[in-house]
Design a protein around this nucleic acid. Structure first.
Lengths: 207, 207, 207, 207
DNA sequence: AATGAATGAGAATTCATTCAT
DNA sequence: TATGAATGAATTCTCATTCAT
């Protein structure tokens, strides 16, 4: 067959690769398995990606792009901070449940030593800036207490979201969550997390 | 060398193993590398540990013991919740800076799919129970607001601590932290985190 | 070489494997040695056979098929017992001289403890049944003396054939044979063995 | 401990070694296991035997010596051929049942390629000569038919005994025997084998 | 002289990567 | 251009043998 890979086939490879890397991590993931599931030959994957590492990188970029898009969409409107937070939290949970492999890939990348700086900048810069801006603005409007540093507040908030992603996207953190709360409903968890965050960020008596 | 391994050599193996597992995870970690770095033969590692899995388990047990000791010490006294939190936060940071490989190994473990439940139970059960109890008690004493679920509150709190561990123990999260806060002192970070947690947990006007 | 293995190369692997297993038994036989002698990579052997055990099983099946074919051919006709015996004896000798590695592999197998039952059933069942039937039939026709148990007689007869196989296929038994008979011709040996067997099986005065 | 090994300890080592080699063959047999079972250190075995190969050789010599002694004892008297045969057969079975490891060692040695000649001469010469002489004498006395070559007759007879040893001493041959005869008593087997041998060796109407 | 822990070569098996077709 | 079989380096684990005590 001398037919060039269609865009759809290329997408399939990336999706199956994300799944395989999510399942098995960079090391154990098998190119042959990705090829098999994508219904292409091993050789063609090496036509498109120099080696396993590079395929992994591409999966990452792909995952992060999707993840970022979803999160940005949640805070694009003009609305009170707490509503934005709720949207973000619900988006977090929905995305993690639906696209666990992407979360697992994200988790995998955060394990790198080499290139950690470059990865972090690529992946986290925009979120960091966005959340910090969101808080700074809310602070100016009196929604957020004055003694909180917007950057650090944003980081703590993002930390909570990140753990939420892991809790719904990674087996280990899922099990850990059960140890804390084996039967509380997802809605109740969201309500409590909002309560927690609101207390943390907002001036008493304000919203 | 046909002399029995000294205790110090045995300790070295465990330390190098933690580093290797931290760097590469269970799968990719190479016994031969651990042996080389520990300056012993491969065979001797198999004399002390039945296989790679068992060495890993020992590293894990060892790590947890150290970590637990540090954390328990921080909350052993009878003191206001916020003081306990501060102690825990400072212990977290100190431990992560001193024992980064342990944190990295922990991070690697949390990526597992298989055995996730067993790992989570081994590693997280005690912490989960301890923090939940701490909050429940503080709630009874009026220190913590009544509408907060102690278990969920404990989880959110532990989530913040976990991210703190990662931030000081893993390269990626360290870089990420810099994106939020490139110059704030550690002391200021602790102060702000305490502020954040206090707001989240405590009834307004109370401590 | 990235061309698919030719049938001849695949046959070579099996032949070299039989030799290696014959020389060293299942345990000690080295896949790398088989690969080297077959002029293929180690990996390709694992492409065709899941593991050493499976390669061994294939060698065994292959050997049995060849051996059985040869032996069955010798007793397929309707002829007096003694003629059949002569054919079998001559087939034994010819086969052992031509395919010594098969005999050596057979000898190696018979040393196993584990799985001895399964091996014995796989390898010996058909022969046992065939020889027993052969004798029982000859007994009904008066060719074999009435006081001989056909099954035991068949076993003693097969015992003699087996030792013949070893004598012509294994170095040790070859040397041992020379100790008994350093100059007698093969023809004379066959004649004497037939005489021996005829005396053992047949009623005096009958053939 | 600076105590020299007693003779009894040395014997124990040899016995345990025969067992271990019988169980696992030369390759799989573990020196450390032999040491453990003999209640001596690994090092001391290497004081007495240069390496595993040499220990194996010594086990062999030991096994063969015992085996030969038993068999010679059975034919030392002045008695009719068939009585001697019965004694030998019964000695065969009794010895094989009691000392299976020795038989297994014998079987293992017959697998060697290198040194096959030397082994065969060491082990088989005396038996070959003894049985040949036994038959030649019986032939002179008219007990054995005149057209049988005493050397070849002795070999066929010894072949039957050898298979008897294997049948009672090696798992594989034991299972094979069951395929022929799953319920016949040992006594009946001896009776039938004697019948078989008598027919093979003796002139009709004679004993 | 005996001990037994350490050594390290060697074997099975996997799988990323190559390249003849 | 796509294929997928072949390659062979790398990894885990075993155990015969050594030698400091």
């Amino acid at each position: 067959m001398l037919k060039k890979l269609t865009q759809s086939q290329q997408d399939t490879i990336l999706e199956r690769a994300v799944e395989e890397f999510g399942r098995n991590g960079l090391e154990r993931a098998a190119i042959s398995e990705i090829a098999r599931r994508s219904d292409v030959s091993v050789g063609v994957i090496y036509k498109y990606y120099k080696n396993k590492e590079e395929l992994f990188q591409n999966c990452l970029t792909h995952s992060i792009a999707i993840l970022t898009e979803v999160m940005e969409e949640a805070v694009s409107g003009e609305e009170p901070l707490i509503s934005a937070c709720e949207k973000l939290i619900r988006a977090c949970i929905a995305f993690s449940k639906e696209h666990a492999p992407y979360i697992q890939m994200y988790h995998a990348i955060t394990h790198t030593q080499e290139g950690a700086k470059e990865y972090a900048e690529t992946i986290e810069s925009m979120t960091a800036a966005t959340y910090t801006r969101l808080l700074a603005k809310a602070q100016q409007e009196g929604e957020v207490r004055q003694d909180l540093d917007p950057a650090l507040g944003a980081m703590f908030f993002d930390n909570l979201l990140m753990m939420l992603h892991f809790s719904y996207g990674c087996a280990y953190y899922g099990e850990r969550m059960k140890l804390y709360d084996s039967k509380v409903s997802e809605d109740e968890l969201v309500r409590q997390l909002l309560l927690f965050i609101k207390g943390a960020l907002c001036a008493p008596g304000k919203e």
